[in-house]
Nucleic acid binder design. Structure first.
Length: 865
RNA sequence: GCGGACGUGGUGGAAUCGGUAGACACACAGGACUUAAAAUCCUGAGGCAGAAAUGCCGUGAGGGUUCGAGUCCCUCCGUCCGCACCA
């Protein structure tokens, strides 16, 4: 009598209910056991979960369940990154309130996540738009402000003149506002900053200790911080048109060794001196206008010609008083790096070389490669930036590059014309957003007192609820009453800051809030001391720089303000690959959902048709699932058809977790088939298995022994591979062991029944973290009325991992000829003797004398002839 | 241009302390069961030659180190990702 198919969707609801009603996954507040904090990047509540979420949360869940079974006190929380623009856009489009839209979405997504059977501690859930959360964030802001880590300064922002709003960089597309299409202007206005540059060195240096982070992410962060050590130099300026107050020009260089090769100085178009000069120089103003146009185009910046404008000013070479260098404004000099001014050494910098060629400036090599004569060295049409010795440089001649750098620095410091300086690419973090749906910055502007922090007892500064989105601009600015307050300091009428915080602020400390989600301080220090850092953080590579760098800054800032005791928030980081899928388009070029397409045939014969019309469909490349390409598979559909376990198992199979996984129908049905196979396997094993709790027999026959060895070896490997997040390999090993158990059911002998029960239980426990519902179901069938989720991870019997006899390969001259089964502890001589007796070995030797025999114990024998 | 990663059967991928390459899965082929199909079970399979035993060739290409290289070194080719005039 065949067993019924396992009805995953129905049984999954049952087990989810059981877990929830028993609070199985609540982290304990008793900080006695060793802890493990597993965190996946929390989602933006867009309204629906997508397959990327399924993959991300499945991985975290496997680890969390596994660690739980190992006895750790596991913290595995979930929350919502809930502030941000989409809610305001929805408000504009649908006449709803951002809060309602957001909380409705959260409710929908929470239900979806629950249907995945994740081992989450829902008691710690929060959204960043909860007043309770942003209240604490305002406290942090005020503490940062007191500590000098938050400040107000004038900054450049992207201003959309039509929508009358500031745009984030990501919202500026080809120089235009993404919604209005208006040309974006650069405006200078007062904005709030976090002083991340204070920790530039620390953030860079500590990267080397983040050994459980992907190398790639560390490299990206290091480049982003962009530390370079060099010399800040002062060039004396002269010239008729020199504006008052400008006697010196500061330039930064990392190649002070080439100072004698300098043939010009160049200012950035945005340099203050440039702007000063442009005031009464229409020609220069015109040049700047040209630069601005080029500046917006992105890619071919490299190919843009090096253009300059001769200001007529001269700069005096600091070490050669009679050498005057022309001062240009040049389009390739960036204001955002160094001092916004350079000295140009054409022989050893490609950009300077091109510039000097265009403007017929001297090109004098001062670094000569080893073996070349300074008198005859020819650059050959491009700058030389390799190693060598200094020449044509007076007192520097003959020195190496490093020696020359040191010598120039020493002399320049001596004469007060220079100082060693470290520059960074990293800028302070501008957090002001002129938007409604964000955390209000708790500041009051008073005509008399200036900037006044909102007193802590007046927090939270709540967002007003009665706002409208029918006109452009920030609703907080035009709200009739909200911003009008009395100055806390002098009591006179004053106004609130109407900027809200960048949503990246919200996500920079949420991991810490999970330690004590309802505390009336940002973070309960005792809880944080126990739980932090996060042991394993899992998320997409797209956050490699911003979110992860901001969080690292926040941890340091929170340590400085007494809110935290760890500077690195994430001990281990794992960046998972994307979920990708074929794309489909019809004759009219419209994208079609996979569910709208019927596929026929295989391989070259594979054809797709639109279900509604029967018309042929073009099968396009496999790409990241996206709304625009409509190559989406809805997790809900998969879960309601095949079950959450099936989706989870598929996500873990085949593809290594850091690589992209191609979602295919075939793969899903394969996963589903395995679920049914396991279900039947347990059913078939039961009648042959010893009763639950039977005493371990004193004797095992060869087949029983072999099964036990296979079980414990599989257990050891699966444990190891879950531990190292190599889920695809763990899955393969579970497949393999399921086959082994299946084959063993036909065998008999002493101890077999006991071994079968042991093997079945180990199998179920091994896939428990991956397919938790099916595992509970099987556990129940195995006769238990306890939850598998509460069951400790099975213990590996080490003795079973070591076999008495082993099979090793035998090579002749490095080619495998045979294998040899021999006692594990056989001596080298015994192995050698046995190997030389093998028929294929003798044949391969063809009578040649054996020169030597290499025996690597328990590994291989190589006969060299 | 700079930086990083990668390149293994028809496909996704195993095998990284240098030691039997291709585990496991998908797709495929053959068989069993069935009136039939589905489902399920069994078997096969890197390529070439051969009935088979077996032999030769094989981890992007070429070279090197080694008793032995997918793994280490050098050169080249290709793919993907990140940064992009960073002084």
């Amino acid at each position: 009598m065949a067993i019924e198919r396992y009805n995953a969707p129905a049984r999954e609801k049952h087990w989810q209910h059981v877990w929830e009603s028993r609070n199985v996954f609540q982290a304990s507040n008793e900080h006695t056991r060793p802890k493990c904090y597993v965190l996946e990047m929390f989602p933006y509540p867009s309204g629906r979960i997508h397959m990327g979420h399924v993959r991300n949360y499945t991985m975290g869940d496997v680890l969390a369940r596994y660690k739980r079974a190992l006895g750790f006190n596991v913290l595995h929380p979930m929350g919502w990154d809930a502030f941000g623009m989409p809610a305001e856009n929805a408000a504009m489009e649908r006449k709803t309130h951002p809060a309602k839209w957001t909380y409705d979405n959260i409710a929908a997504m929470r239900a979806q996540l629950k249907s995945m059977g994740l081992s989450l501690d829902w008691s710690r859930e929060f959204a960043t738009c909860d007043v309770e959360y942003y209240h604490q964030q305002q406290k942090l802001f005020l503490d940062f402000y007191k500590e000098g880590l938050a400040y107000r300064g004038v900054g450049k922002v992207n201003w959309d003149p039509v929508d009358q709003t500031v745009l984030a960089n990501e919202q500026v597309i080809d120089g235009r506002g993404w919604r209005s299409g208006a040309l974006v202007e650069t405006r200078e206005m007062p904005v709030w900053y976090f002083r991340i540059t204070k920790y530039a060195d620390e953030l860079l240096d500590a990267l080397k200790d983040l050994t459980r982070w992907p190398e790639k992410v560390r490299v990206m962060q290091a480049n982003w911080i962009g530390r370079s050590e060099g010399l800040l130099m002062k060039y004396e300026l002269s010239g008729e048109r020199l504006p008052a107050g400008w006697r010196e020009l500061e330039v930064f260089t990392t190649r002070a060794d080439t100072i004698f090769g300098g043939s010009f100085c160049a200012l950035s178009p945005g340099h203050p001196l440039t702007l000063e000069l442009a005031k009464d120089n229409p020609e220069l103003a015109g040049f700047l206008e040209d630069c601005r146009h080029v500046g917006t185009s992105e890619e071919d910046l490299n190919r843009v010609e090096k253009k300059g404008f001769n200001t007529g000013l001269t700069a005096t070479h600091p070490l050669i008083p009679d050498r005057k260098l022309p001062v240009f404004v040049a389009n390739f000099v960036l204001m955002g790096y160094g001092t916004g001014a350079i000295f140009g050494c054409p022989a050893h910098d490609q950009r300077d070389f091109e510039f000097a060629t265009a403007y017929k400036l001297p090109i004098v090599p001062v670094v000569i490669p080893e073996g070349q004569d300074p008198a005859t060295f020819d650059l050959g049409g491009e700058a030389y930036d390799g190693p060598g010795r200094i020449a044509n440089s007076g007192f520097l001649n003959g020195l190496t590059i490093d020696e020359a750098k040191a010598e120039v620095a020493r002399r320049m410091e001596e004469i007060g014309k220079g100082e060693r300086r470290t520059m960074y690419r990293l800028r302070d973090w501008g957090i002001s957003r002129q938007r409604y749906w964000g955390c209000p910055i708790p500041i009051i502007h008073c005509d008399a007192c200036g900037i006044v922090p909102v007193p802590e007892d007046q927090l939270p500064v709540k967002l007003p609820e009665d706002v409208t989105f029918d006109v452009p601009g920030n609703p907080l600015v035009r709200h009739p009453t909200w911003k009008h307050v009395d100055c806390p300091s002098c009591g006179k009428p004053a106004t609130r800051e109407t900027d809200t915080m960048d949503t990246f602020v919200d996500s920079s400390w949420y991991f810490a809030r999970f330690c004590s989600p309802h505390a009336d301080v940002p973070v309960d220090l005792d809880a944080a001391k126990y739980w932090l850092p996060v042991d394993q953080y899992i998320g997409g590579i797209e956050h490699a720089i911003l979110h992860l760098l901001y969080s690292r800054f926040f941890a340091r800032a929170m340590v400085a303000t007494g809110h935290l005791n760890v500077k690195e928030p994430f001990g281990g980081l794992f960046t998972q690959g994307m979920v990708i899928h074929e794309t489909y388009s019809n004759r009219n070029g419209q994208w079609l959902l996979p569910s709208e397409v019927r596929i026929e045939g295989e391989g070259d014969q594979r054809r797709a048709y639109e279900i509604a019309t029967g018309a042929p469909v073009q099968i396009g490349p496999v790409e990241k699932m996206s709304k625009s390409k409509k190559n989406l598979v809805d997790p809900d559909d998969i879960i309601s058809t095949y079950g959450a376990d099936c989706a989870r198992w598929f996500m873990l199979s085949d593809s290594p977790p850091e690589r992209d996984v191609i979602w295919t129908e075939a793969g899903v049905s394969g996963a589903s088939r395995f679920m049914q196979r396991v279900w039947r396997l347990i059913d078939e094993a039961l009648p042959k298995a010893a009763p639950k709790g039977s005493p371990k027999p004193g004797e095992f026959g060869p087949d029983a022994d072999a099964l036990r060895r296979a079980a414990h070896k599989a257990l050891a490997k699966v444990s190891q591979n879950i531990e190292t997040l190599r889920f695809n390999v763990a899955v393969a090993q579970i497949y393999e062991f399921a086959s082994t158990l299946h084959a063993a059911l036909g065998k008999d002998g002493p101890g077999m029944a006991w071994a079968i029960r042991e093997a079945a239980e180990i199998l179920v426990q091994m896939f428990g973290p991956m397919m938790p519902h099916l595992a509970e179901e099987c556990w129940e069938r195995l006769g238990y009325n306890t939850l598998l989720a509460d069951q400790p991870w099975p213990t590996v019997e080490e003795a079973l991992l070591v076999d008495d006899t082993i099979t090793i390969a035998v090579q002749v001259n490095g080619r495998r000829r045979d294998e040899l089964t021999i006692a594990r502890n056989a001596s080298k001589a015994e192995v050698e003797a046995a190997a030389l007796k093998l028929e294929p070995v003798i044949r391969a030797l063809e009578g040649r004398p054996v020169k030597k025999v290499i025996v690597v114990p328990q590994r291989i024998v190589n006969v060299v002839a």
